[in-house]
Lab assay of single mutants.
Amino acid sequence: EPLWIRPDAPSRCTWQLGRPASESPHHHTAPAKSPKILPDILKKIGDTPMVRINKIGKKFGLKCELLAKCEFFNAGGSVKDRISLRMIEDAERDGTLKPGDTIIEPTSGNTGIGLALAAAVRGYRCIIVMPEKMSSEKVDVLRALGAEIVRTPTNARFDSPESHVGVAWRLKNEIPNSHILDQYRNASNPLAHYDTTADEILQQCDGKLDMLVASVGTGGTITGIARKLKEKCPGCRIIGVDPEGSILAEPEELNQTEQTTYEVEGIGYDFIPTVLDRTVVDKWFKSNDEEAFTFARMLIAQEGLLCGGSAGSTVAVAVKAAQELQEGQRCVVILPDSVRNYMTKFLSDRWMLQKGFLKEEDLTEKKPWWWHLRVQELGLSAPLTVLPTITCGHTIEILREKGFDQAPVVDEAGVILGMVTLGNMLSSLLAGKVQPSDQVGKVIYKQFKQIRLTDTLGRLSHILEMDHFALVVHEQIQYHSTGKSSQRQMVFGVVTAIDLLNFVAAQERDQK
């Protein structure tokens, strides 16, 4: 057995438009009618409502009807409940999964919650491996369901041993009777949507819809739904939504950006999952974080739909894509998950301010006199920076000697690579993860907040409520011999709460 199987392995699926269902090699399930009293909570997966979006479509000038398939009504709160249950049931049916076995899954959280929910009911041990950027709410729900959680670096490539995929496979090879159901490759993922989600949409719309818009992560949702719609409703256009920084969209030119990270969760990847059939997507749109969270908040405030950030991405694209539809036509959007997962993220004004998705003037509360002053007023001194090749031991000596707790790590040209902190280095040394002679590049981390000289002290204040420091950066445009230009970030300084307090105190003292 291989040590790991690539999540982007070539698909062996034989589905073709027009091929009889009787030739399918898979076990198919028909939607079942729910009894009045459910035998367990797993029976509350599927049969989610279709809700008309009344205000947002009109606000953006849509002539067509805009409908939302509300997947956050599933038992675990997301569309991923469907595939989690289906993968477990299919693994039980073919004898792969037996009582007492362990389920391991690399996930952005929602599939993990679905699997942990099913594992709690069915009696399996469950280990979820997820990147650090995923919300604390997801972690809390997983723990409450009895799952064990392993976190991995957000910026690790999918084929790196440190990625959530790599760590999951390492655990599988170490733990007896453990299984990775593997949402990236498992046919049960798109089949769950082909058999149930798509049929529900067709039934709820009486077979009449002209466009379907869905955000894409593993691709199982859009693949399964689109294949069924292509068979039953061939005139329906399928629109895929991919965040900026991901590479799922086609044509490839759409993916060209210097951005590699994004805040919206559960969609987009740096590889093409095996289950994603991009041939059934008629057109791709890219979405960005700001519009995703703005539209998610709009869905909550104006439509009462308590959905997550990827739902915002989907609707932001839908109001663009559906401009081509006329009166009497219908566009369906998939709202994948609930706001429950993001209470401390985009639902929080403070978080939105820190990330730059909300401006101070958007909030009406009274601010102190210094709130709208610029960061450049602080008069920061030149920063202490270190090269990635310097040793951890030497870096600790320098920081202690100069009285700093942290320093930016830059390359020879001064471009920011990340940050090192005294606390992080000492804990890594004590844990045996690094040696004093190791290069400081081994303990770089990139989960820090950046701020510009033109940003306000109010925004800085919000950042420092949650973080010990902020890195002050400025952009530099560099022209190359080819005539092309590129933008790079340079370090201007490091600012802490002490710097802000000293500035405010000094100004008030001078005024007296």
Rank of each mutant, 00 (worst) to 15 (best):
I238N: 02
V241Q: 07
V241L: 03
V241D: 06
D242P: 01
D242E: 06
P243I: 05
E244C: 06
G245A: 06
G245E: 05
S246Q: 03
I247R: 08
L248S: 04
L248Q: 04
A249N: 04
A249F: 03
A249H: 04
E252Q: 15
E253T: 09
L254Y: 08
L254A: 11
N255V: 04
N255A: 05
N255H: 06
Q256W: 14
Q259V: 11
T260M: 11
T260Q: 13
T261H: 12
Y262H: 02
Y262I: 01
Y262E: 00
E265S: 05
E265A: 00
G266I: 00
I267S: 04
I267T: 08
G268R: 00
G268E: 02
Y269R: 02
D270E: 13
F271E: 01
P273S: 01
P273E: 07
V275R: 00
V275K: 01
L276W: 02
L276T: 03
D277F: 02
R278K: 14
T279E: 11
V280R: 13
V281D: 04
D282Q: 08
K283T: 01
K283L: 09
F285T: 07
F285S: 12
F285A: 13
K286T: 00
S287I: 13
S287C: 15
N288T: 03
D289T: 01
D289H: 01
D289Y: 00
E290M: 14
E290G: 14
E291Q: 15
E291P: 02
A292I: 06
A292Y: 01
T294C: 06
T294F: 14
F295I: 07
F295T: 10
R297F: 00
M298T: 13
M298Y: 10
L299T: 05
I300W: 00
A301S: 04
L305G: 01
L305E: 01
L305K: 04
L306D: 03
L306E: 05
G308L: 00
G309C: 00
G309S: 04
G309W: 00
A311M: 05
A311G: 11
G312D: 03
G312M: 03
S313K: 06
S313E: 09
S313V: 14
V315A: 14
A316N: 11
A318I: 00
V319W: 00
K320A: 11
K320L: 12
A321Y: 08
A322Q: 01
L325A: 04
Q326T: 10
Q326M: 12
Q326S: 12
Q326V: 12
G328Q: 08
R330W: 01
C331Q: 02
V332P: 00
V332K: 00
D337A: 04
N341F: 00
Y342N: 02
M343H: 05
M343K: 06
M343S: 04
F346W: 01
F346H: 03
L347K: 04
L347Q: 01
D349M: 02
D349I: 04
R350V: 07
R350K: 14
R350T: 10
W351N: 00
W351C: 04
W351D: 01
M352R: 04
M352E: 01
Q354G: 04
G356Y: 07
G356Q: 09
G356M: 08
L358V: 11
K359H: 11
E360Y: 14
E360P: 04
E360R: 13
E361P: 10
T364S: 14
T364D: 13
E365I: 14
E365C: 14
K367A: 15
P368R: 11
W370H: 06
W370T: 06
L373D: 11
V375L: 13
V375M: 12
V375P: 01
V375Q: 05
E377A: 10
L378V: 06
G379M: 10
L380Y: 09
L380Q: 12
A382C: 04
P383N: 08
L384T: 10
T385H: 08
T385K: 10
L387I: 15
L387T: 12
L387R: 15
L387G: 12
P388H: 07
T389C: 04
T391D: 03
T391F: 15
G393I: 14
H394W: 10
I396L: 15
I396W: 07
I396S: 13
E397S: 04
E397W: 11
I398G: 13
L399F: 14
L399W: 07
L399C: 09
L399T: 06
L399D: 02
R400A: 10
E401N: 12
E401M: 09
E401L: 03
K402Y: 06
G403A: 07
G403F: 08
F404H: 05
D405P: 10
D405N: 04
Q406G: 13
A407V: 15
D411M: 09
E412W: 09
A413P: 11
L417Y: 10
L417V: 15
M419Q: 11
M419A: 15
M419E: 05
T421L: 13
T421Q: 12
L422C: 15
L422Y: 04
G423V: 11
N424F: 09
M425E: 05
M425T: 13
L426A: 10
S427D: 09
S427R: 10
S428Q: 12
L430Q: 05
A431K: 10
G432C: 05
G432D: 08
K433M: 13
Q435G: 12
V440T: 01
G441M: 10
G441P: 05
G441Y: 13
K442N: 15
K442V: 15
V443D: 09
V443Y: 14
V443H: 03
I444C: 15
I444E: 09
Y445Q: 08
Y445W: 04
K446I: 07
Q447A: 13
Q447M: 12
F448G: 10
K449R: 14
K449E: 14
K449H: 02
Q450E: 15
Q450M: 13
I451H: 08
I451R: 09
R452M: 12
R452Y: 15
L453F: 15
D455V: 12
L457F: 10
L457E: 00
L457V: 11
G458H: 07
G458N: 08
R459I: 12
R459T: 11
L460E: 05
L460I: 03
S461M: 14
S461P: 11
H462L: 14
I463K: 12
I463T: 15
E465C: 09
M466E: 10
D467C: 07
F469N: 10
F469K: 08
F469H: 08
A470K: 06
L471I: 12
L471P: 12
H474C: 11
H474I: 04
E475F: 09
E475P: 10
Q476L: 14
Q476R: 05
Q476C: 08
I477E: 08
I477R: 12
I477L: 13
Q478D: 11
Q478I: 11
Y479N: 14
H480T: 10
S481T: 12
T482H: 03
T482S: 15
G483P: 12
K484C: 13
K484G: 11
K484S: 13
S485V: 05
S485K: 02
S486Q: 13
Q489S: 12
G493A: 12
G493K: 11
V494R: 03
V495N: 08
V495Y: 09
V495S: 14
T496Y: 03
T496R: 07
A497S: 13
A497E: 03
A497M: 11
I498C: 03
I498T: 12
D499K: 05
L500A: 15
L501I: 09
L501W: 07
N502I: 10
F503E: 01
A506E: 10
R509G: 12
D510R: 10
D510Y: 11
